[in-house]
Every structure is written in C-alpha cells, then in structure tokens.
Amino acid sequence: MKGTMLLALVLALAAPAWAQRADQPLPGPALGSPPDASLPPSVPDSPAKPELIVDLSSPRVSITSAFQGESLLLFGMFDPPGEIVVVVQGPAARETVLRKERFLGLWLNTGRMRFDDVPAYYFIAASAPLQRLLARTGGGEILSLEDRLSTIRPVRLRTPAQMAEFRQGLVEVKRREDLYPANFGQVTIQAGRLFRADLPFPSRLPEGVYDVRTYLLRDGKIVTAVSRPLPVGKVGFSAELAGWATAEGPVYGLGAIVMALVLGWLGGAVVRRL
C-alpha cells in the first residue's frame, strides 16, 4: 500500500517533465541501470520482521579430490503471497575470449577479446516463468544473463558488432561448461510459504566467493531480498597442492621432481626383482 502511494507520488512529480519532453522514458529503475537515489530502495535495508528466510544445504562448495560437481539445495520460507527468484553469481574476473578461424586449412585462434567484470557463473531460478516476472517488475536489480552481460566492458574498445559476436562466444563456452546453465531453474513452492530450489554446480567450477541472492516479489515489485555469500574452494589434499603450486612454485616444482625420482627409482628396482 505504502509502495503504491510512493510510486504515485513519484509519477505525479515526474508528470510535468514528461509532458514537456515526450520522448523521455518514464522514470523508474531501468534494466541494469544503477539505482536512482530519488527512488526508495528496491530492497528495504532492515525489514522489521523477516518476511523471507533462506538457507542452503551446505554453507560452502568444497572441491575435494572426489569432486565431480555438486547440487546444493536452497530452501526457505516467506510470507505469502509472492513469487521467489534466486540469482547465483560467481566472482567477476577478466576473461579472454578466443576465436578460431580457418587459416591455410588449419583452425587456429586468430581473434581475441578481453572482457572485464565477467561473472564466473550465473544461474537464475524462479517460481514462475521468469520472463513474465521480469516484465512485470521491470527487472530492477534482477538481471537476466543477457542483461547482466550487457554491462561487461571490453578491455580495448571495439565495434559493437564485434563485441556482440565475442559476447555470444563467451556465452557459448560458458554454456558448454555448464557455468551459465541454459535453462532457468525451478523454485518450487509448497504449502504456499515453503520454497526450495536446486543450484547445479559443474565439476569445472572456478573458485571464489559466490553470491546467492533470493528475492521475494509481490505485485511485480521486490519486497525483500536475502543475500548469502557461498564460498567455493578446494579443500583438503587438492587445496593444499593447488595452494602450494601457486604460492610456492619452486618448492612445489622440487617436490614434483623428488616424487618422480623416488617413484622411478623404486619402481625400476622393484620391477627388476620380479
């Protein structure tokens, strides 16, 4: 009710300006634009009473020596009515997209473009068809993959056509590795107030702190959102080895050499006895 009144107020204030310049779009949060300070925040800072409670089946994704990808269960409860949208985003980094072309009959990388701020992983799940939800909300801070990727910038400026091609290539590769799952996930709502969703993580998963954000939408607006950091990292033996390899390359290299020498020596000696 309060929200509707505020919106009406904003519209009333904006109406004269709108009348003067008819080509200007309606004020309001555009898809992917930074939040407008004059508007109330889409996500209340501290709801008086939690309307949305979210938890994950595991506080982290552990990449062990037996890791083959994992599916986490996200579950929670909300004050009905409403719809739930979950956006999982991997840490942003610079990615290099390479493109092969035929050269003298052989396929080799001839083109490359680097993009900044590319999420390692991007997954959206929703309790209703997302297109419909987004059309009604106008998006706000919930971005479809296309909208999220429209904000990434190439390190060196290129023509829009080239950028679009390479951005498409980036999505292709990420899709292939299941890092940008092609299908939207399903959030199932039970008993009107309980919800659950499966978050699929593939085996070749970049490390870092992922952001799992759950939104409660009501009448096309974000009522509240809960953000949970999800650390993804190697643990145990593989973590130790990888950490060692990056932090102490010389020690790791010597260790690898010693391992090979000992095994080769022993192996040779044992086999000759047989």
Partner: peptide
C-alpha cells in the same frame, strides 16, 4: 583435429582475477 571444423570456434583463455 586441426583440419576439422570445430563445434564452436570460441574458447576461453585463462581467467584473470583482478
């Protein structure tokens, strides 16, 4: 492998975490 048209011409280089 070098002569065959790849399923997708695109691949990714190493990720650089800034």
């Amino acid at each position: 492998e070098l002569l065959r048209t790849p399923a997708s011409p695109y691949s990714l280089g190493p990720r650089e975490v800034l």
